[in-house]
């Protein structure tokens, strides 16, 4: 099922489906490795619940919730890719 990255709880992760919204954000994120199929996980939350930090491709990045809402992820697919990585 598709969800926004903002709706994930700390500790959860999902695989990226697409980035909606304005071009600038999408381009920036794409360059930083937010590509279809990449696994993104939620790390920590700032004191007022916004922004939050995420891990992707082995590094950490912080995004405001308004931005994380533009990022669509899928939690079912992450299971599969995790299985695949274990096998590989």
């Amino acid at each position: 099922m598709n969800k926004t990255l903002a709706s994930l709880k700390p500790g959860e992760s999902g695989s990226l489906v697409k980035i909606e919204g304005e071009n600038r954000l999408r381009q920036r994120l794409t360059e930083m490795g937010f590509i279809k199929g990449t696994v993104v996980g939620v790390d920590s939350t700032a004191p007022f619940g916004d922004p939050r930090s995420y891990s992707i491709r082995g590094y950490q990045i912080s995004l405001r919730n308004a931005e994380a809402e533009q990022i669509i992820i899928n939690q079912d697919r992450v299971m599969q890719s995790a299985v695949k990585e274990n096998v590989g």
Partner: peptide
């Protein structure tokens, strides 16, 4: 956009 790396 608040896209900021948190380096190790």
């Amino acid at each position: 956009p608040f896209v900021m790396e948190l380096p190790p």
